[in-house]
């Protein structure tokens, strides 16, 4: 493996469309970036913003949410509800200093295996460009090396927080 940053991405898929699109990409042996790990939901409407926050705080560098195309939801129109949450969630994430591009919404029908593969690869590239999320998992609730408040000028150096690297 090369030294380039390999992001970890959690993908939420709808049971009826995008999960099947992923299946189709598989059946058709389309190759795409291996950085995405999928979670099946019954519908993109099931996507609780908590899941996204949990994934991002738990070590994911990006989250991909996929659902049926607008107007094609198997539960009639629940994907619109996912869309609304997504748009608000992005605004909140921006306020928290997380690049909103780290969360992406993709519409992919069960027939769009190629699109699923292409969008996944593209998203991995986008996240690769953004770099690691570097989200501190402060198990003891504490930063690793707090430093003194300086003597006569700003000398506070909460040193940059390193992502936990597998041993």
């Amino acid at each position: 493996m090369t030294d380039q940053f390999e992001p970890t991405i959690i993908g939420f898929t709808c049971n009826w469309c995008s999960y099947r699109a992923a299946d189709l990409a598989g059946t058709a042996r389309m190759k795409y970036a291996p950085n995405v790990r999928l979670i099946r939901l019954m519908c993109s409407g099931r996507l609780d913003p908590t899941f996204v926050l949990r994934a991002l705080s738990g070590g994911a560098d990006g989250v991909m949410i996929t659902g049926c195309h607008p107007g094609e939801c198997h539960y009639i129109e629940q994907n619109y509800k996912a869309l609304r949450r997504f748009l608000l969630l992005k605004r909140v994430l921006t306020g928290l200093g997380i690049e909103p591009e780290r969360v992406k919404l993709v519409w992919a029908s069960a027939a769009e295996g190629a699109k699923f593969a292409a969008e996944t690869t593209a998203f991995v590239e986008e996240i690769r460009k953004l770099g690691p999320l570097c989200w501190g998992k402060d198990e003891d609730g504490r930063m690793k090396d707090d430093e003194d408040i300086g003597n006569s000028s700003i000398k506070i150096h909460p040193s940059s927080f390193e992502k936990e690297v597998p041993a």
Binding site: L53, R54, L56, S57, L96, G97, L133, W135, G136
Partner: peptide, 14 residues
């Protein structure tokens, strides 16, 4: 108290 406890910059700040 949130899983994302702070602004990322607050963590990364030098």
């Amino acid at each position: 108290a949130s899983p994302l406890k702070a602004n990322r910059e607050a963590f990364k700040a030098k």
